[in-house]
Amino acid sequence: MKHVGKLEYYLLALIAITLFNTFLGEQFASTTLVTILIALTVTYKGFMVIDHFMELKGANKNLRFLMKLYFTIFPSLIILSAFY
């Protein structure tokens, strides 16, 4: 853990993004733009947890690649589902 003080910042950012996503879902019909926005924030949240909580940043590059690929593929499917 290189930057212990930053963990609090990451937690607050993750909670803020979650509340923002929920607000978008509750207040707006799922337009393509809202869906894309939610998918991008899901990817961002995933990357934050992978890099800073799971501590894969600077660790095994293959494991980090696989985890990030996972959080790229499924949010991409969320975007694709907006065009059904």
């Binding site: 979650t18 996503n21 929920t22 978008l24 879902g25 019909a29 799922s30 869906t35 939610i38 998918a39 899901v42 949240k45 995933g46 947890v49 992978i50 909580f53 799971m54 985890m67 959080f71 499924f74 949010p75 969320i78 589902s81």
Partner: peptide, 15 residues
């Protein structure tokens, strides 16, 4: 935790 980050928008947010 990561799995819930994906499950939550799929089931509760996206309509």
């Amino acid at each position: 935790d990561l799995m819930w980050i994906l499950i939550f928008p799929l089931l509760y947010v996206l309509r």
